[in-house]
Design a protein around this nucleic acid. Structure first.
Lengths: 242, 242
DNA sequence: CCAAAAGTGTTTGATTTACACCCATGG
DNA sequence: CCATGGGTGTAAATCAAACACTTTTGG
């Protein structure tokens, strides 16, 4: 019985346990009019390098539960999670120097958080602006550069035909705040007047009846996401230019 | 050292191998004007049941390589593969009675094959019509019903904004043949005249100069996919009705 | 000649875009 | 009153849907 096959799952089993299973989380938010991602400072291997939060899946733990647990351990903000989806799985041999580690990546979106730094524990989770990280490949440990790029690309694509943008917003938000999400994630400009008309004509925004002047100027109506709104919009909400 | 953590990856390692890694393949094609999926008859557990082709990833083997290898082992048609992408990862504890098995699913598209049955080996890989399978949950082993449904849904979605439909076609194809792909996968009818105008106005079809009368009637121009065509079309090629 | 499918033209309505203009607040 | 952003109206351009009509083959 060759040892590089690992160990039998059960005594006499015909299958072998020969890899370690991890989850990594791409947690995106918008602050200071920029896209930010939550990163930790690694200790074990690749010490001192920045990395996505994540960790090993427990025996008998579901993948998504593991992602939520790791996020809670390393930060402390699971309350505000508005969106969580499986992103992609990374399993290239050699991606982790410790052995065969395969990592299921999750994409998580939250609104900007009141506290500047969530999870002020030893690991030191902090927000980092995304554009700079994408400009400098090699700034993250393991293959986390690739995972981050894939996560951002997924978020960009989903703004077009889902209600994902609202996951970056507080419970109640103005149309202009929602528009800023699109403008920042797509790095583009959108006509405020046409955007307003288009978004208020869909059935995914529900007026709260309140208004706010927090953005200056004339008071803006506040909206929330309709409870029964489908996540996927057909036709697409907006089209990203080439 | 609790045994349910698995075994250390290396002597003295701080990580444990505690799961088995598999790939499963959703291989779709169109034949007899219907969507078909390639299934095998299981032997080991769930014997006699139908299942997606797949198997365990070898140590030091990349995930995508494993998918291609398993496809080659159980069928024998890797030549015709036009599209391969990672679909999703399934890791619910208990999804496999043999232990903790996590499976990375791949979606593969091929054109209709000359031979009625690819891979006439012991395992007995055969084409099965998709609609009947989706109508009867429980017809596949493990959680392969879910995986198949996710694969079909991915293919449906991607027809809308990518050139994926051409992956179901032979090298050279007519506009009408391409239209049949859409009609079958979306279970809808498309106006042949508007479809023709729309598709020939994109830059992803390249006329071969040849014509064919294989569909009857007036000879139709043959096209192939342009070498340098981007896979993603913006604006979307066609919109699927609600 | 007829049936069948390819392919073009045209009309109509919907959607998108650009931008003029008015509204309601804070300072 | 004025600067600031919220919000509505409208005309032009673009796109989508429906369908009349012509073209080119096989039988």
């Amino acid at each position: 019985m060759p040892s590089d096959l690992g160990t039998p799952a059960q005594p006499g089993s015909r299958i072998w346990y020969n890899c370690a299973l991890a989850v990594d989380i791409v947690l995106l938010t918008i602050r200071h009019d920029q896209l930010y991602v939550l990163l930790i400072n690694r200790s074990a291997p690749q010490a001192g390098q920045l990395a996505l939060p994540g960790g090993f899946v427990l025996p008998d733990e579901d993948l998504q539960d593991a992602a939520l647990r790791e996020l809670g351990d390393e930060t402390s903000l699971q309350v505000a999670i508005r969106h969580l989806e499986q992103l992609k799985t990374y399993g290239r041999p050699g991606r982790d120097p410790r052995g065969r580690v395969i990592s299921v990546a999750y994409l998580v979106i939250t609104p900007d958080l009141p506290e500047p730094r969530p999870g002020t524990d030893a690991i030191g989770a902090r927000w980092h602006p995304v554009p700079q990280l994408l400009d400098r490949p090699g700034s993250l440990a393991f293959d986390h550069d690739t995972i981050l790029a894939d996560g951002v690309e997924r978020a960009r694509a989903k703004l077009e035909y889902t209600t994902l943008a609202a996951a970056f917003c507080q419970d109640d938000f103005t149309v202009a705040e929602l528009r800023r999400i699109y403008e920042i994630v797509w790095a583009t400009r959108l006509d405020p007047r046409n955007f307003h008309r288009k978004l208020t004509s869909t059935d995914f925004l529900e007026p709260t009846g309140q208004t706010t002047t927090r953005d200056g100027g004339r008071p803006a109506a506040l909206y929330r996401v309709r409870e029964d709104a489908a996540g996927i919009m057909n036709p697409p909400l907006l089209r990203k230019a080439d």
